[in-house]
Write a protein that binds this DNA or RNA. Structure first.
Lengths: 203, 203
DNA sequence: TTCACTATTGGACGTACGCGCAATAGAGTT
DNA sequence: AACTCTATTGCGCGTACGTCCAATAGTGAA
């Protein structure tokens, strides 16, 4: 098999296993079995298991981020882009990705590489939000507020609520979580209550 | 050594190790070395390692919750009690405890026992907050709002912001995180901006 | 057809894990 | 002083991990 394809297959197999068992519980033998090959093959392509898992985490996180970016691009107004950003969190399909984040945050405290990557990606998410807020202030859709604070608050509220939805299903209804998160930033940006929810409907 | 004391010593040793390495990375041999005893001893007191770790998690989580309850009791007004609740999150001494929570949320997705315990404790934190909010509405200090939503929003905002502080030091200043979280609930409860921060100073 | 090259195999190696168990030690009772 | 009971030891068992490596298969170039 073509080396590039094989490399990709290995990453995909590792991702599938990690989705089921968690990144830190994913083993070389698991990945080999998932592919139907021998375990030695993995080390022919990846120097270590840690490196493979790092690639997997990066791939999952980047995919999520770029998918959200794409969904935001089609919106025509800052409010619309903000709604697109929020919509990503309400989608049950993203629960698996969020589980990766829960694992990363847990691991970050003790693994330098994970911490740095996790931190950088979180900052990207916050900056994506900051950008939209800045645009909205410029167009006058949002009231003039401290951009950095508003972005971190919105992201953290989304993370905190989604955390409950994903880690403890049944404790908060998914719809409520998104609605509550939207109401928080509506307040900060001077949007009328429900404005974001309406914009999410349209998209 | 007295069996009850020994049991407690084991839990304490396990807690010390888990604080350093994480709950899921804590081994029987680690705990034995921490105590300066043999590894077989642990199994004389605990049927399984999982059971010991469950006790450790419970102990840490309960201690945190009851400490916060105590700190709230001395406050005389709902606003004061709310400030005491928030103060717990700003304390760097609690970072270790919060790391336990990060581990728990990560583990909850794949371990039924952890999920149930984690969920129940999170609900207790939310109810503690709901209670104070209800009191504040009764006294007229807070504006009449949806209690459940306000409490989940406040708790989630605190969790989300603290998550960044603990998992990614340097990305958000600790003081800002608490201030931002306070501003979020001030909005929901109709408190003047800075009211909670002032009340936290007084305590 | 022969030759080089590499993708791939399959198992060995050292390590670490949870757990169980026979042996020991030490304290309290008779 | 003899006995009982249990806290404690120390090691062995089976398993699983990441890693490594000699052997093999398969493919494209000469």
């Amino acid at each position: 098999m073509d080396p590039n394809v094989r490399r990709q297959k290995i990453v995909e197999a590792a991702q599938a296993v990690a989705t089921r068992k968690g990144l830190s519980a994913t083993t070389v033998r698991d990945v080999a079995e998932e592919m139907g090959t021998s375990s030695g093959l993995i080390h022919h392509y990846f120097a270590s298991m840690d490196q493979l898992l790092a690639v997997v985490f990066d791939k999952v996180a980047e995919a999520d981020l770029s998918a959200t970016r794409k969904r935001m691009e089609v919106a025509t107004s800052p409010t619309g882009r903000l709604a697109a950003y929020f919509a990503a969190w309400g989608d049950p399909d993203n629960d698996e990705t969020f589980q990766f984040w829960l694992d990363a945050w847990s691991e970050a405290g003790r693994n330098d590489a994970v911490r740095e990557r996790s931190r950088d990606l979180n900052i990207e998410w916050q900056e994506l939000l900051s950008e939209v807020i800045r645009q909205g202030i410029e167009t006058g859709e949002f009231s003039d507020t401290e951009v950095d604070a508003a972005a971190w608050k919105a992201l953290s509220l989304l993370d905190g609520l989604t955390l409950q939805v994903v880690a403890h299903p049944t404790v908060i209804e998914r719809g409520k979580a998104v609605k509550w998160a939207a109401s928080g930033i509506e307040n900060d940006l001077g949007l009328p209550p429900g404005a974001l929810a309406d914009a999410m409907q349209d998209a």
